[in-house]
Design a protein around this nucleic acid. Structure first.
Lengths: 154, 154
DNA sequence: CAACTTCTTGCGACGTGTTGCATGAGGGAC
DNA sequence: GTCCCTCATGCAACACGTCGCAAGAAGTTG
């Protein structure tokens, strides 16, 4: 891939990737830049295979395992994170996306995003006090049954 | 459901399966009984594919998709449940196993089982009040970093 | 017990994710 | 620019999980 001349997404955004790769003795490759580009241009969460499919349109020779391995690498570098959807499948997102918790209904599959919940912070504090455990409650969703599905049958 | 008076694993334990299947117009098959038997004889959580592998020793002709479909069926009947491990992969267990939450460390993979945590109940109550959402905090683990891994690098 | 209905199973193919290995490319030294 | 070392990529094969379909079996009716 050539460098990106587009005005919308400035090339300055690519610096963190190059810097972090070099800091750790890893290499800067076209594939890594392209994959990071997809994550940057993606509003919410995205499945690894969707990243692969998007890239194939532009780079038909790119390999699935390169995409999967690169996502792990970018996560190690702290540029990308993943959470899990309602089935437990991984979903990737840019590391700077604001954190939030998902409530997922096992009846209808409905999703609710929760940005703030004081009790959640109390839970995190309690786990830190009792177990020395630094919890990240955004990594997995919280499963349950939504109001509508509760009303419907139980 | 009939109570099971057998101390070991008596055949009375099979009655709930047959009853529930018939109640819903589903059929009683050897495969279903064998799969339920594996879950009953399994202390903790088990991967679907491990159920399959165990059954193959006794029933070499059994098919992988039968096992997967049957686990879903047994879950519909309320006899089996699944949670998710630290990678998000499903883990099955007998429905009567006592519920608990898993803390999973993303550094070392270490697991801590939490039986009681008052703040967790407050969280469940809060989600019910604010969203009408009946949360099951045992379904997904809580990801984070354990005390040792925090000390090591962070 | 024989016929019939329809649920279940086994099979094959596919989707998503991982791994081992040979080839290819990044980047440092000169 | 060239050499060289090592990392990264592409490929092929595998592991786990799902789906559509035809054959088989559970259970019902007479």
């Amino acid at each position: 891939m050539a460098t990106d001349p587009t005005p919308g997404r400035g090339r300055a955004a690519e610096a963190p990737l190059r810097d972090r790769l070099r800091q750790r003795g890893r290499r800067v490759t076209l594939q890594r830049e392209a994959i990071m580009q997809v994550l940057r241009g993606c509003a919410g969460h995205i499945a690894a295979d969707d990243v692969y499919r998007r890239l194939r349109e532009e780079f038909p020779q790119i390999n699935r395992s390169t995409v999967y391995r690169t996502l792990h690498t970018l996560e190690e570098l702290g540029l990308v994170r993943h959470t899990h959807d309602e089935t437990g499948a991984p979903r990737y997102h840019h590391a700077e996306d604001p954190p939030h918790v998902h409530l997922v209904c096992r009846g209808c599959g409905g999703l609710t995003a929760v940005d703030e919940l004081p009790v959640l912070e109390q839970l995190v504090a309690s786990l830190r006090d009792r177990y020395g455990f630094a919890a990240d409650p955004t990594h997995f969703p919280i499963a349950g049954t939504c109001a509508q599905c509760r009303g419907r049958r139980g």
